[in-house]
Design a protein around this nucleic acid. Sequence first.
RNA 1: GCAGAAGUGGCGGAAUUGGCAGACGCGCUGGACUCAAAAUCCAGUGGGCUAACCACCCGUGUGGGUUCGACUCCCACCUUCUGCACCA
Length: 883
Amino acid sequence: MEPCSFIALKRFSCNKVSIEQFALSFMPYNHQHIEAKWQKFWEEHNVYRTTTDTTKPKYYVLDMFPYPSGAGLHVGHPEGYTATDIVARYKRMKGFNVLHPMGFDAFGLPTERYAMTTGIHPAKVTEENIANFTRQLKSLGFSYDWERVINTTDPEYYKWTQWIFLLIYNSWYDDEQQRARPIEELPIPPEYTTPLEIQQYQDSKRLAYIAEIPVNWCEELGTVLANEEVDEWVSKGYTVERRPMRQWMLRITAYAERLLRDLSLVDWPHSTIEMQKNWIGKSEGAEVIFPLVGHDDGITVYTTRPDTIFGVSYIVLAPEHPLVDRITTPEQRKAVEEYKKSVALKSDLERTELAKEKTGVFTGAYAINPVNNATVPVWIADYVLAHYGTGSVMGVPSGDQRDHDFAQTFGLPIPIVVQPKDPKLAASWDFSRYAFEDYDNAIAVNSKTENISLDGMDSNTAKKWITLWLESEGLGKLKVQYKLRDWLFSRQRYWGEPVPIMFFDDGTRRALELDELPLCLPDIHDFQPTGTGESPLAKVEGWVNFVDKKTGKKARFETNTMPQWAGSCWYYLRFIDPKNTTALVDKAQEQYWMGTGEHGGVDLYVGGAEHAVLHLLYARFWHKVLYDYGYVSTPEPFKKLFHQGLILGEDAVKMSKSRGNVINPDDVVQEYGADALRVFEMFMGPLEATKPWSTKGVEGVARFLHRSYRMIADEDTGTLLPNVQDVELTPEQSFLLHSTIKKVSEDIESLSFNTAVAQMMIFVNEFTKAEIRPRIAMEQFVLCLAPFAPHVSEELWHILGHTRSVTQEPFPEYDPACLVQHEVEIVLQVNSKVRAKVVVPADADALALEMIALQNPTIQKFLNGKTPKKVIAVPSKLVNVIV
RNA sequence: GCAGAAGUGGCGGAAUUGGCAGACGCGCUGGACUCAAAAUCCAGUGGGCUAACCACCCGUGUGGGUUCGACUCCCACCUUCUGCACCA
């Protein structure tokens, strides 16, 4: 076989060769040539096309798709993308049918703001940015099936985003069946008879609804800001105020319990699961009614510490609480009004930032403690949040530090109703300064009337007991509460999915139907905000106002658009069947790629930890709605999740333009090659760790790749080295080869890419020393390297004489027999200190090892004639002689 | 304040059913090749002590503990990073 010399000659005359000839021509190792050559080859041969082949086991490995910003890819992107690419390539070689897609989350404010300043249409900017991202991603040699690419701003895509929104809109949550159901199936209570009443009742139960809620309004920007955006703009000098506005909301709270419970089904980072649990924030307590003096009704408070109810010193309502106006006495009205006004001006941020000092005002009203009939004053204070619980709390200064602070500030009494269990601590606890909040180690005191007593009970028992008692007396009830709030789902922007709902003059409305979707964005040229709190869509007369074809009525479209989260809530489903025009995803394909039941879902999902809560919670919510209707087969969308760590600048701080420490992947690819960038990013350290960039490190990896190449081929001619021959491996070579295959396979499975690379480096270091290099070892090494450095591996694979793409070869299997060692080096210790090392037969038992140790001259020297008290021998490890 | 993660050479990191700490890479030192440089190759590289890379001693954030033996397990503490933050 002499193909190589023949081929080597060919490189001088390959100006117009066909791709096959081109692929078979070699050249000196030059990463730019090699990478361009194989990327072209892969593309032209559709090497990464995925079909739904149900005869093979499937593997769905997904990246969090990027927002295509004008800045292009940064070095953080290739980190996660390389990791998933390695897994995808490995799984293909292992015989799996792999779905490994890529797309673009392209709606969003930055593009719209760019349009506002330049007048260039966001669609055009988006198109250019996507083209640039695609070029960059392709230059890195990722094995995506580009036939399946998704763009969330494509009407054919957002048609289905709108469709899912309408599915949610047309649903209510059946608490008994614990699932979403069509709104038509909602039982209407008999007292609602007119069509308008029925519509209003249905609207109050829909999973998507309109509400008037306070939002962060920025006058200069002409838009509402998300809570997490407020900080950024305020620091730039903009003012943000709280303003009640009409908004679309999604009732994610209906799914709180399932979102919490089903976290047990997924294989996610512990910290992410904890974050989601905290975000959902489940607590168990009681609602208790405090009757009002001089009124027929009462105040319902929510408390997690009903065991401290005998210690109530006052009641506090949130300033926005609806009862405030009714119960405030004339003498207090002025003070209450002023306080409410001052609170309204504060943003949520200010309310919490200035949290050290408690503020509040007495309403003049009094309430009755239902357990002991004590009369307590009713205050308002901004430390009580209107949107949580019942918007009112019972103040127990001895059991809650916040209540204690409040009582101290306003000179309210501090009745002591809890005590540390530990008598010493109880004696020394200074209740005039601190509440005792450690309820796991507390007992109730001073808590009795003629009817009941909690005295002496530990707090947890007292809590259960008093709750049951309140319930039996009709004074309160057990209550489960979540911190999770409904999802604010509208933005006053142009560049987002239109909400496909129209409003008629008579106050009714109509949602579009499937045959009317997508509701496309109109082509506009003025992207400036309206200034009225409406999106630029409100200015597009011909789009907003129209006569509805289906009803013949004059109608107006919703002008708010959806938030950026919407498109990313379900994109993983669209990748399965991206061109389907009749459904968001074909049922059979969905079942194949997602699997079914509680163990199904995307097999591996990799992305940044910054999405640990919102994106992952929103996507889970939408998935569960789809699950309730049978559109998807698994309760959870993402089976295994992994977060890649942040890559810092070379100076070990976060990369930023202002610091000038930003690394552009294009430059790295240009200078060192995509393979070097890929392997370096994997070699830097554990995938999940935050770690600094190192140009020297990339050079080191580039050196390794060149060494790998030179181990097999002549770097000047690109031909196979004569040293590579069909010879048997020595036992040592065999051991190294098979431990390398084992290590690389296992490390890819566990995403420990850094140690897999280290092992391949060891392999190259050793085999480079060998004068004659066994062909079989070289080939199997190239197969191991292929998922990491696909370009150079493909080149070497062909230099080794193969014609099929390395991406379609099976991954090598290691032979356990080759890993059996006949001799091992063990350590001999005296009093746990290493004193000698000896090579012994691997199967030597404890007794044999003991004999070897005791006869060892060095050990005898340290024993100095003394008799060992004890000898510990661990086969294949060590012998420890104790004297 | 609460929750989570993590502290190992000059640097990135490796090794945890408890068993040779520092694999691999970077950097550095010396050497080969070269007129010279780059590239490449070879050797060395935790600290101390020492004439000695003979031996010995110390060493995985700090202080205790368990054990024949601890980077690994237990207790207390310190530091850093990330998220949440008056959620009653």
